[in-house]
Write a protein that binds this DNA or RNA. Structure first.
Length: 458
DNA sequence: AATATAGTCAACCGCACCCGC
DNA sequence: TGCGGGTGCGGTTGACTATAT
């Protein structure tokens, strides 16, 4: 037995003692004494019955002993050689999630919570990858934490990510996108396969100004009791508080000291603290409702019979409605989305309706606050800008089926801002987000409206 | 006090990938 | 090249506790 083995055994014994210490009133033990622990499910295997359900301490000990002797891996052999009536998968899971000596127990620290938000914004539901970034934490732990958090935020009508994170992502994405555009502009337009390799550098997040909302966002919001969050007044406070807007945002100008967003009522709504709740279409609260918010709560919560937001159904319609011309797969490999959740031209959520990709799940919520009503002439400007920014765009779009501007059914004067591809692909977020010094791009009203706010972050 | 609802956690399931044969 | 086993990952479920009504 080497030192590591001793360490593992000691740690396990320590945990075992801790576990036993909970016997009197511990929740752990209550759980263990109830339910299927006493009558675990049995599954027939080739060489005997396999047990399912919660693990007992004795089983843990057997598994720990086996792993200390033989090391990790070859999990199916555990059952054969140790006599443990558990399938390999179960053993692996138990080891990875509970018995590993390097596991960190207890609640997530604020720093870890912050990191999880960053990581999720960066890579989506890649729990294992996220766990790799958080030593001592398991993917299951992170997943559970995140799902709980999502539920809470959804119920509260809060966006999943703090605006800073959104902007950073979008900046990074658009910057790379524009680089790609520049590189290929005089040939055949942006190489979409190249875009698949676009990575959002992690350093992006390391440079985040933590005090600008992110740090305060997570713990503060997370600490809000669900019931309290349903109260709108408390809600409004928390939003400004959580996003750190009270100090950063002047509701009478705008976030960054720029003039108000003329001609685009409701834009930047998330940051708009001036959301007198009597404003049905521009109020920050309404615009912040995530797409996944239950529809029936919208009216109840906000007291307005109609919402400018896309309903779940309408989002689904957009997601599932067939491409007008060619399918997405015509121009993107299926693998691309896996490594590149933020591809503005592909967006996994568009295809699969994945509610959990950074710009999928959150797309609805993240972008909900920029759902704008745009007058017809403004729309023209958007389109003009778009075509002007890359002469190849229309041709490419017609080929790919990617429509830079999506209109809502029956609402011809509204851009579908719930769609990240619209925002990104059309250049809305890219106008200044990537710190591209293309001033010509920013001559339109949209550019000045959005670009200024975003650009000032650079 | 009883009931409903939300939150937490552990474990299972199905799928996809990798790798050796 | 195809196949099968092993493994990892993400989604989901179920049991239980905590809190609100």
């Amino acid at each position: 037995m080497n030192c590591l083995t001793y360490k593992i055994v000691i740690i396990h014994l320590f945990r075992h003692i801790q576990e036993m210490g909970k016997i009197t009133n511990g929740r752990e033990d209550n759980k263990r004494s109830k339910g299927h622990r006493d009558s675990p499910a049995i599954e027939e295997a080739s060489n005997g019955p396999l047990k399912k359900g919660p693990w007992t301490s004795a089983e843990d000990a057997v598994l720990v002993d086996y792993v200390t002797k033989h090391g990790e891996g070859n999990w199916n052999a555990v059952q054969k050689h140790s006599g443990l009536s558990r399938c390999g998968k179960s053993c692996r899971l138990r080891w990875a999630n509970h018995l590993r000596p390097d596991l960190k127990k207890g609640a997530f620290t604020p720093e870890e919570e912050r990191r999880i938000i960053e990581l999720h914004a960066n890579m989506g539901n890649k729990w294992a990858r996220m766990a790799a970034e958080l030593p001592g934490r398991t993917d299951n732990e992170i997943k559970n934490y995140w799902n709980t958090r999502i539920k809470r935020l959804q119920r509260a009508g809060l966006p999943i990510y703090p605006p800073e994170v959104c902007l950073k992502i979008l900046n990074g994405s658009q910057e790379s996108q524009n680089i790609g555009t520049l590189q290929t502009a005089d040939t055949h337009g942006p190489d979409l396969t190249q875009m698949d390799h676009l990575e959002i550098p992690e350093a992006e997040f390391k440079n985040l100004e933590l005090n600008q909302g992110l740090l305060s966002y997570s713990p503060t919001v997370l600490d809000i009791p669900a019931s309290s969050m349903l109260k709108q007044d408390y809600f409004s406070e928390k939003i400004t508080e959580s996003f750190g807007m009270s100090s950063q945002y002047d509701s009478h100008t705008n976030t960054y000291g720029q003039p108000p967003l003329g001609g685009l009522p409701g834009s930047h709504a998330l940051l708009n603290d001036n959301s007198s709740s009597s404003e049905p279409s521009c109020g920050a609260m309404k615009l912040e409702l995530p797409s996944l918010q239950y529809l029936d709560t919208q009216q109840d919560s906000w007291g307005t019979p109609t919402s400018p937001l896309l309903s779940l159904e309408s989002v689904d319609t957009l997601i599932h409605s067939p491409p007008t011309e060619q399918t997405q797969s015509d121009f993107l490999s299926p693998r691309s989305s896996e490594n590149y959740p933020l591809n503005p031209y592909k967006t996994e959520w568009e295809v699969h309706g994945d509610p959990n990709s950074p710009l999928g799940h959150s797309a609805a919520s993240v972008f909900s606050h920029v759902l704008l009503s745009v007058e017809a002439h403004q729309m023209n400007q958007v389109r003009l800008f778009y075509t002007a920014s890359s002469s190849d765009e229309p041709a490419r779009n017609s080929q790919s089926g990617f429509n830079p501007i999506h209109f809502r059914q029956g609402s011809s004067n509204q851009i579908d801002f719930m769609r990240p591809d619209v925002l990104l692909g059309s250049g809305w977020f890219g106008l200044g987000g990537g710190c591209i010094n293309d001033q010509s791009v920013r001559t339109d009203s949209v550019g000045s409206a959005f670009g200024d706010a975003v650009n000032s972050e650079c």
